[in-house]
Each structure stands twice: as structure tokens, then as C-alpha cells.
């Protein structure tokens, strides 16, 4: 499955195992969309702002959606979402929290800051696959994404 006119899925997760599981799950879900990984909030901003190792536009295409973990070193999900929503160039980007947290504090805070949805990860691979399928189906097949002069 691929939606070529939409940007890549940008996944933010500090945990290598999680990244491995996510890749596996994406594969099993049959999602062939371009998927990029960054490891924490700081890297996410560098990617979005094309700084550091993401300076080349080819290394940092504008993502269709961002799947954001919350617990991360350096800059966690909440902080980085705040930065994104305050940045006039980035504020319209769809951000989906994909995390193991189901803490109501976190959920409230994230929605307050304008997260587009909040999804809690389940333990089993099957569940993860289903979650990713659903996300892809909605955001890449169903929803219309904002188009901006970012490219």
C-alpha cells in the first residue's frame, strides 16, 4: 500500500527495539509508504527544520504524518509538540501520539497542545500491526492533509 502524493511517515522513538518492532509491524501491515525514523525531540526538530545531518532536502522530505513517542531523552513528546505548534512553519503538521502511555495527564496535555490523535500501543505484534494499519488507512487513504509551501 502506498500513497505517493503524500509525504513519508516520520516516526519518533528513542528505543531501538521499538523501532525494530515498528518496522516489522509496518512490514506485516503491508504499508510501503516511505518511513523515516528520528530518535528524539531534538532530532525531530532538526529534521523538520533541516538542520545538522538533515540539512539536505533529500534527507528530510516533509512528512505526511508524525508518529510521536512521549518518553524520550533530551526533548520529550510533549515538549517537541509544543515547539511544533508554536512554529508557524510547522504548526499544521498532523502529529499522532503513538506511545505506551495511557496516562490521562499525558492524554489531556497532548490534546491541549493540539495533537491530532492519541494512540496507545498494545503489547502484541498483531495489535501493533492493526493499529498501524488503522492509522495508515485513515491518514493516507481517508483524510486530506494540509499542503504547504514546505518542500
Amino acid at each position: 500500500m502506498k500513497a505517493p502524493d503524500k509525504g513519508p511517515i516520520l516516526m519518533v522513538d528513542d528505543d531501538a527495539e521499538d523501532r525494530l518492532l515498528l518496522s516489522e509491524a509496518l512490514k506485516r501491515a503491508g504499508i510501503e509508504q516511505d518511513v523515516r525514523f528520528v530518535e528524539d525531540g531534538v532530532e525531530l526538530l532538526e529534521y523538520l527544520r533541516r538542520e545538522g545531518r538533515f540539512a539536505l532536502p533529500s534527507s528530510s522530505p516533509r512528512p505526511g504524518i508524525i508518529l510521536l513517542d512521549l518518553n524520550m531523552p533530551r526533548k520529550n513528546g510533549i515538549e517537541v509538540l509544543q515547539d511544533i505548534r508554536e512554529d508557524p512553519d510547522l504548526k499544521l503538521l498532523p502529529v499522532i501520539a503513538l506511545t505506551t502511555s495511557n496516562r490521562s495527564d499525558d492524554i489531556h496535555r497532548m490534546y491541549e497542545l493540539g495533537v491530532n490523535s492519541f494512540v496507545t500501543k498494545r503489547g502484541s505484534m498483531d495489535e501493533l500491526v492493526m493499529v498501524l494499519k488503522n492509522i495508515w488507512n485513515f491518514w493516507y487513504q481517508t483524510a486530506t492533509l494540509p499542503v504547504e509551501g514546505y518542500q
Binding site: 528505543d15 527495539e17 521499538d18 518492532l21 518518553n71 505506551t100 496516562r103 498494545r122 503489547g123 505484534m125
Partner: peptide, 24 residues
């Protein structure tokens, strides 16, 4: 307690997921 239990769940979740992957 919350964070601890959340963090405790993290590795569990992975043990679970990788056991799944392994058995497959």
C-alpha cells in the same frame, strides 16, 4: 509508582512482542 510501572511494562511489552515474533 506510575512511571515505574509504565517503565516496567515497556520491557514486558517487548518480551511479549519478540516472543511472538520468535514463535512465528
Amino acid at each position: 509508582a506510575y512511571v515505574a510501572s509504565h517503565d516496567l511494562k515497556e520491557p514486558l511489552r517487548k518480551v511479549w512482542a519478540f516472543s511472538d515474533l520468535l514463535s512465528e
